Computed example of a mutant assay.
Amino acid sequence: MRSETLRVHTGGRETVHDLTRECAEFVAAYDGSASGLLHVFVPHATAGIAILETGAGSDDDLLAALADLLPADDRWRHRHGSAGHGRSHVMPALIPPYATVPVVDGRLALGTWQSICLVDLNVDNPDREVRLSFLEG
Rank of each mutant, 00 (worst) to 15 (best):
E4D: 13
T5S: 12
T5D: 11
T5C: 10
T5P: 03
R7V: 14
H9Q: 15
T10R: 09
G11K: 07
G12P: 12
G12N: 15
E14F: 11
H17F: 14
D18R: 09
T20I: 00
R21T: 14
A24C: 04
A24E: 12
E25T: 11
A28E: 13
A29G: 13
S35K: 12
L38N: 03
F41K: 00
V42C: 04
P43N: 03
H44P: 06
T46S: 12
T46W: 01
G48T: 02
G48M: 01
G48D: 07
I51K: 02
I51M: 00
L52Y: 01
L52R: 03
E53K: 07
G55A: 05
A56R: 13
A56F: 09
S58Q: 05
D60H: 10
D61N: 06
L62R: 11
A67N: 15
D68K: 12
D68T: 14
L70R: 03
P71D: 10
A72I: 14
A72E: 15
D73I: 11
D73R: 14
D74V: 11
D74Y: 10
D74E: 15
W76R: 13
R77D: 11
A83Q: 15
G86S: 08
G86Y: 05
H89F: 09
M91I: 09
L94T: 06
I95G: 03
I95N: 05
P96G: 10
P97G: 02
V101K: 03
P102I: 01
V104W: 05
D105R: 15
G106C: 02
G106K: 05
L108Y: 00
A109V: 10
Q114H: 00
S115K: 11
S115R: 12
S115C: 04
I116H: 04
I116K: 06
V119N: 08
D120L: 07
L121P: 12
L121S: 09
L121N: 06
N122P: 07
P126D: 03
P126E: 08
D127A: 04
E129S: 13
R131A: 01
R131Q: 05
R131H: 07
E136H: 13
